[in-house]
Amino acid sequence: MNYSGFTLWFTGLSGAGKTTISNGVALELKARSCPVEILDGDVVRTHLSQELGFSKQDRDINVRRIGFVASLLSRNQVIAIVAAISPYRDVREEVRHMSENFVEVYIKASLQTCEQRDVKGLYALARAGKIEYFTGIDSPYEEPLSPEIICDTQCLNIRESINKVIQALEEYKYIPKIRQVIEKG
């Protein structure tokens, strides 16, 4: 199999499990000697988009920036893993078209579940009016209409979700199956 880079875009509400699952997928891919770079939404905001707020316009700019960086990585045979809420469908579709190979992973969890998992207390702050434009509270999240992969983290645990993503990437022939890696090694 000829290897090529691709963008693996994790989207979902805060607390759904995007970062945890994307980190686990990255570890699995690195174990297969795949070149991987993670673009986590919180980290990118700190280093690339710190001047942006959380209005729709600012969120769209942030997502486009992440998409641009991911496309640069993927066209240079790197697997660009993005873990960002990216709440708006239209901008996710824009970034889909920036990369030749794009896989959208919807990390699905209800708002109630995400609030229960919220170790940082962000949902409580948003409900108290101390955080504006918080996705799911006073700012919308538009679920993907046809993502390539759905991990419902209310039904699947972290390991099952990671395995589901890896299996789908094998089926799409973006990565070699593990026995192919062993046979070549």
Rank of each mutant, 00 (worst) to 15 (best):
Glu100Met: 08
Asp152Tyr: 06
Val82Ser: 10
Ile175Ser: 06
Ala109Tyr: 06
Phe134Val: 04
Gly121Ile: 11
Cys151Lys: 09
Lys56Asp: 08
Ala128Met: 06
Ser110Met: 13
Ser86Cys: 10
Val91Pro: 11
Tyr106Lys: 14
Ala70Thr: 08
Asn157Cys: 14
Cys151Gly: 07
Val119Ser: 12
Ile149Leu: 10
Ile175Trp: 01
Ser110Ile: 14
Phe68Leu: 12
Thr153Ala: 11
Thr135Lys: 12
Gly121His: 10
Ile66Gly: 02
Asp152Thr: 07
Glu143Cys: 04
Ser99Glu: 01
Arg159Phe: 03
Arg96Tyr: 00
Leu122Arg: 10
Gln167Met: 09
His97Gln: 15
Glu142Asn: 10
Glu93Arg: 15
Gln167Ser: 14
Phe68Gln: 13
Glu115Asp: 00
Ile137Val: 15
Gln57Glu: 15
Val69Ala: 11
Arg64Ala: 13
Lys164Met: 07
Tyr141Asp: 07
Ile81Trp: 02
Gln77Ser: 10
Cys114Glu: 02
Leu145Asn: 11
Gly121Asn: 10
Gly67Val: 08
Arg75Gly: 01
Pro144Glu: 05
Thr113His: 07
Asn62Thr: 09
Ile81Asn: 01
Val95Pro: 06
Asp90Ser: 13
Phe102His: 08
Glu115Asn: 03
Arg89Phe: 04
Leu72Glu: 07
Ala84Trp: 03
Arg64Pro: 00
Glu93Gly: 02
Val95Ala: 04
Tyr172Pro: 02
Arg65Gln: 13
Arg96Cys: 01
Glu160Ala: 14
Ile162Val: 15
Ile162Pro: 04
Val119Met: 10
Arg59Thr: 03
Cys114Lys: 11
Asn76Lys: 15
Arg75Cys: 03
Asp90Ala: 14
Ile79Gln: 05
Ala83Val: 13
Asp138Ala: 09
Arg96Thr: 04
Leu122Phe: 13
Phe54Arg: 11
Glu104Val: 10
Tyr174Ser: 02
Ala109Gln: 08
Tyr123Arg: 04
Tyr172Val: 02
Ala83Gln: 12
Arg65Leu: 06
Ser139Gly: 06
Ser146Ile: 04
Phe54Ile: 10
Arg75Tyr: 01
Ser99Met: 07
Gly53Leu: 04
Val165Arg: 07
Asp58Pro: 01
Phe102Trp: 10
Val119Ile: 14
Glu170Pro: 03
Glu148Asp: 09
Val63Ser: 08
Thr135Ala: 05
Ala109Thr: 07
Thr113Ala: 14
Arg159Tyr: 05
Cys114His: 08
Tyr141Leu: 12
Ile149Ala: 09
Tyr133Pro: 00
Phe54Asn: 03
Lys108Gln: 15
Ser86Leu: 11
Glu115Lys: 15
Leu122Lys: 13
Tyr123Asn: 03
